[in-house]
Design a binder for these strands. Structure first.
Length: 553
RNA sequence: UGGGGCGUCGCCAAGCGGUAAGGCACCGGAUUUUGAUUCCGGCAUUCGCAGGUUCGAUCCCUGCCGCCCCAGCCA
């Protein structure tokens, strides 16, 4: 496994574990990442499993990957495989420890029987509505079910029949007998098993009853010897219930520690909403480059190292926090800056002709693949008398601080000569269509004497340039918190993807899907892995370059 | 107005009774054939508010205020 530098910053979980190890309360660290295979993983999950795998790594323990597959109605193997691939993509390894809650269904059933025998569980035959009414409210205690005092024998028989499929869905339910007046709603006789005549992705039609997450999660951790069950804050209220099951069953007790889940600005993180975005075709799929899913980010071109850096950088706490999307983008730039080959591409072209350069001449200029890393080599860049430059690199009447091309001004062509704008040609509408320039042919690889040329712009040679499709991605939502309004769909950014045609240097035509380049002065672009064809790449804008000029304006 | 949590710089986040780490952002300045990168420097007399305990409190106590989570046969 690659070990990205980890400026081991302290956090409260690390502190707890360190103390436990020192005091002898624990002698090893076993964590786990327990996703439900009902959707694709997103950046919030990455925070969670980076934490879990990272902790195991730091303390010389291990981290399990366990699928909590207790609801067959929503789960399937496609998600299982995708989740495994995502965790691996980020560079984590669960070794031998690939588990499923469904591996433990027999044991869970035995434990349910055990609790009935101990008078700690009963079969309720109220309808779901009745149960809801009798549960009370936040301020009113609940009312005991009329079935609460059934005999153990009757409970046992009913559960057996539930298991055998003798009842339709919803006819009965197994509940823990705790306290209907508990101020903690989770302790008001929570459901343990429900009847579900459903096909399970791993068990097939073996079961007609399935354990609730609350009756499976804690015991799954216990069976696996998980020492630290790290989960998000919303499960804090469930901890007394998990502890109750563990205690009544007399089994190994993991320690649950909760942390705040990740909130990222300009995006949504709930699986339900991501699923809706996919189903309602607001995006092209789970791997749409605008999605906060790991498959989406991979396709967008975000390197796994950047995501790990991000997870490390944002830290872990117990207060609800909002991380700005720009923090993630900065991690992406940081990584890509070191690894991406530099290329030239023009997204919004304007023609430039070099009057003093022979019309029939084509020069192959040497251009470094990475100016700071010579060992990354060079490539050839064709130069001729007719070029394209970026439209916004020219201004007819520029402010003093604009050091790009303007009438009478000089500018350096990146990796090429210094040129001077001699004449501006417009069409009948006054639109600039071409710039006539002259080149100082003694400036290739050196600066002219006696004058300084500050501006540098990128370009492509007109005849050799190739046209490719480029997708300019932007944030999916234009509200910082899309959930703040009535309906998060209203916050969708209509301009989150804009397709355009770019002119690229010819070398780029052979780019392999999944590779990322820096289009100098523009941004990082990754060859789309779905829609590119051999010799016909489609580029996704991964992230723009920082642009202090844009801020100045 | 039941219960469980949380409030330290613009955003994260250390700190656990001895006098405010770090990262990101931001602002200067240097280098630069990417207005990118890199580099150097700056950036909380103050820890939600008000009292109290103490020689000393962000850390302990009390009371306020604000925010988040819980009433699925979802996870």
């Amino acid at each position: 496994m690659s070990t990205p530098e980890r400026p081991v910053s302290s956090n409260f979980i690390r502190t707890i574990i360190t103390e436990d190890l020192e005091s002898g309360k624990r002698d090893q660290v076993v964590t786990r990442f327990p996703p439900e295979p009902n959707g694709y993983l997103h950046i919030g999950h990455a925070k969670s499993f980076s934490l879990n795998f990272g902790l195991a790594e730091d303390f010389g323990g291990c981290c399990h990957l366990r699928f909590d597959d207790t609801n067959p109605l929503k789960e399937n193997d496609e998600f299982v495989e995708a989740i495994k691939a995502d965790v691996r993509w980020l560079g984590f390894d669960w070794g031998e420890h690939l588990h499923f809650a469904s591996d433990y269904f027999d044991q869970f059933y035995l434990w349910a029987v055990q609790l009935i025998k101990a008078g700690k569980a009963y079969v309720d035959s109220q309808t779901a509505e009745q149960m809801r009414e009798n549960r009370g409210t936040l301020t009113k205690p609940g009312v005991d079910s009329p079935y609460r005092d059934r005999s153990r024998e009757e409970n046992l028989e009913l559960l057996e029949k539930m298991k055998n499929g003798d009842f339709p869905d919803g006819a009965h339910i197994l509940r823990a007998k705790i306290d209907m007046s508990s101020p903690n709603m989770n302790l008001r006789d929570p459901a343990m098993y429900r009847i579900l005549h459903a096909h399970h992705h791993r068990c097939g039609d073996q079961w007609c009853i399935y354990p609730m997450y609350d009756f499976a999660h804690g015991q799954g951790d216990s069976i696996e010897g998980v020492t630290y069950s790290i989960c998000t804050l919303e499960f804090e209220d469930h901890r007394p219930l998990y502890d109750w099951f563990i205690q009544e069953l007399g089994i190994f007790a993991p320690q649950q520690i909760e942390f705040a889940r990740l909130n990222l600005s300009y995006t949504v993180m709930s699986k339900r909403k991501l699923l809706q975005l996919v189903n309602d075709k607001h995006v092209s799929g789970w791997d749409d480059p605008r999605m906060p899913t790991l498959v989406g980010m991979r396709r967008r071109g975000y390197p796994p190292e950047a995501i790990r850096t991000f997870c490390e950088r944002i830290g872990v706490g117990r207060g609800a926090s909002w991380i700005d999307l720009s923090v993630l983008e900065e991690c992406v730039r940081e990584q890509l800056n070191q690894t991406a080959f530099r290329r030239q591409a023009v997204l919004d072209p304007i023609k430039v002709t070099i009057a003093n350069y022979p019309a029939d001449k084509v020069e192959e200029l040497d251009a470094p693949n990475h100016p700071q890393q010579p060992d990354m080599g060079i490539r050839k860049l064709p130069f001729s008398h007719e070029l394209y430059i970026e439209r916004n690199d020219f201004m007819e009447d520029p402010p003093k601080k604009f050091f790009r091309l303007a009438p009478g001004r000089e500018v350096r062509l990146r990796n090429g000569y210094i040129i001077k704008c001699e004449e501006v040609i417009k069409d009948e509408n006054g639109e600039v269509v071409e710039l006539k320039c002259s080149a100082d042919l003694d400036t290739l690889g050196k600066n002219p004497v006696g004058r300084k040329v500050k501006g540098i712009i990128h370009w492509v040679s007109a005849e050799q340039a190739k046209e490719v499709e480029v997708r300019l991605y932007d944030r999916l939502f234009n509200q910082e918190n899309p959930d703040k309004g009535e309906n998060y769909l209203e916050a969708l950014n209509p301009e989150s993807m804009q397709t355009t045609t770019a002119l690229i240097e010819p070398e780029l035509l052979a780019a392999e899907p999944g590779t990322t380049f820096q289009f100098e002065r523009v941004g990082y672009f990754t060859v789309d892995s779905e829609d590119s064809q051999r010799g016909k790449p489609v580029f996704n804008r991964t992230v723009t370059l920082r642009d202090t000029w844009a801020k100045l304006k």
